[in-house]
Computed example of a mutant assay.
Amino acid sequence: MNLDEYRRTARQWLEANTPAAEGVDGAKRFMAGLYDAGYSGITWPKEWGGQGLGQAEERAFAEVAREFSMPTPIFSIGLGMCGPTLVDRGDDEQRARWIRPLLRGEEIWCQLFSEPGAGSDVASLQTRAVRDGEGWIVNGQKVWTTNAQYADWGLILTRTDIDVPKHKGLTMFVVNMRHPGVTVRPLRDMTGRAHFNEIFFDDVHIPDSDRVGEVNDGWSVAVTTLLHERLSISAGVGMSGDNPTSLEALREVVDTDDPLVRDQLVELYIRSKALQLFNQRLGQETRAGIFPGARGSAAKLLLAELTVFQADLAVNLVGPQALLEDDRLAFAVSWAPGMALGGGTNEIMRGIVGDRVLNLPPEPRVDKTVPFKDLKVGTQA
């Protein structure tokens, strides 16, 4: 099938199957249909449940999908972060067990890294995993976790050794979010909605078969996840009219005959297009086996800055009445500052880019060789 035919059939399927508004069950039905039609996991390995197609098909579908409001956000963590980590760092049994249900929307995933005392400095986390026969017992707290209220599984980073420096005593696991020792509590943000959660783990048993990577090598697995997270977040940029601050949406509600307005819309188009092309390049390199490294942080930083720019531009062009009359726009504007925090703050991203992309001198650090138990970090007294 050539790409024109691929686009045509994809558009036909989306027109016939994209629901106007659905809850979690409806989103799962949609995702299952999307997978069965061949449009979920387009470039993922076929042996693990993906479609095994090329980048051209994935780009073609993405171009068509921008025209539709698909009920897929609750799957974004699994598709963009957890699943790719399992493909890269999991074993064959884990891939065979989890990838296909993830792609088909049968199971929802979340990512469990941040803690009350370990946000930007993730390696300072204190959630402990202790050996217990053939498994592990986990106790601790995570916070700012997206979709935890829906999740069946979570990718959790834990501390398994306090006698070594903080980056060297971490281990990654897959945790059953339905375990009776897991408590999920919603956190309401400035939009008035509860997108995030805090999660408490009380004597949660995890079998050793659900460990991802080697014991005490969790930081390297986490770096893989964070790379995919930043690429996934930055790839969310688009000019779809479904976003009330997008170029298409703003063109419908402002005076495009005003040359000053046109100048600002052109700036929005240039920023959006540049980031799209940058993400496309990083995606192609990743699928070709070329590790983008810290440039993923640059993409995430650019998206955060673009999101705030879009929100400010929308308010300036539409006027303050938009925040009173248009609930979607009010939500988008209040949500925008969060992009400068989620997935790593802008300050952290700039530090990573300066250190690892531009080769500037790194910030001085005194904790690289100190055992974690001797550090005074986060909530550890």
Rank of each mutant, 00 (worst) to 15 (best):
M239T: 02
N346M: 06
I348N: 04
P207D: 12
G344K: 01
S246W: 09
E198W: 09
R66M: 11
L103W: 09
A65S: 15
T307C: 09
G338K: 01
V182D: 04
P71W: 07
L34A: 14
A32K: 13
K273Y: 15
F201E: 07
C82V: 10
R100D: 10
V366A: 15
G343Y: 01
R29M: 01
P186F: 04
K168L: 13
V333A: 08
V164P: 09
Q55F: 14
G213A: 01
E58L: 14
T72K: 03
A60F: 13
G181F: 07
Q321I: 00
C82D: 11
V215G: 10
G52F: 14
C110R: 01
R211S: 13
D263W: 01
G342F: 12
G343Q: 07
V215A: 14
R328D: 14
R29K: 03
K166M: 14
G181E: 05
M172F: 13
I348D: 08
L103V: 03
D163C: 05
R104Q: 15
Q149E: 08
V175I: 05
G319I: 00
I108K: 10
S297T: 06
G236D: 05
S209F: 11
R365S: 08
N147T: 05
G41H: 09
N2D: 15
V184C: 06
R89A: 11
S209N: 10
A60I: 08
D208F: 07
A21I: 03
L375Y: 00
F331H: 09
I74E: 11
M1T: 09
E15D: 15
G181Q: 07
L3S: 10
L265G: 09
G140Y: 10
D327H: 06
Y150E: 14
I199H: 00
D91E: 03
A249H: 07
V308Y: 02
D152L: 10
N346L: 07
S220N: 02
S232W: 08
V223N: 03
E248I: 13
E63R: 15
A27R: 02
D189H: 02
W335M: 13
Q12I: 05
P292I: 03
A311N: 05
V353F: 12
A21N: 09
N346A: 01
S297L: 08
A330Y: 07
E347Q: 07
L277C: 07
V143E: 14
L317P: 02
F331G: 00
S234D: 03
R128C: 00
P101L: 09
G49S: 11
L125G: 15
L302T: 04
P101S: 09
D132V: 02
R271K: 15
G319W: 01
L324G: 00
W153D: 03
I199V: 13
L79P: 08
D132W: 03
R365M: 07
R89S: 10
L53W: 03
M31H: 02
L265Q: 11
T345K: 01
D163L: 04
G236V: 02
F173G: 06
A336F: 08
G140S: 14
H205D: 10
E285G: 00
G354E: 11
L112R: 02
G105R: 08
A129L: 04
A123M: 11
E347L: 05
Q310W: 04
L103Q: 12
E325P: 01
E267G: 15
S246Y: 13
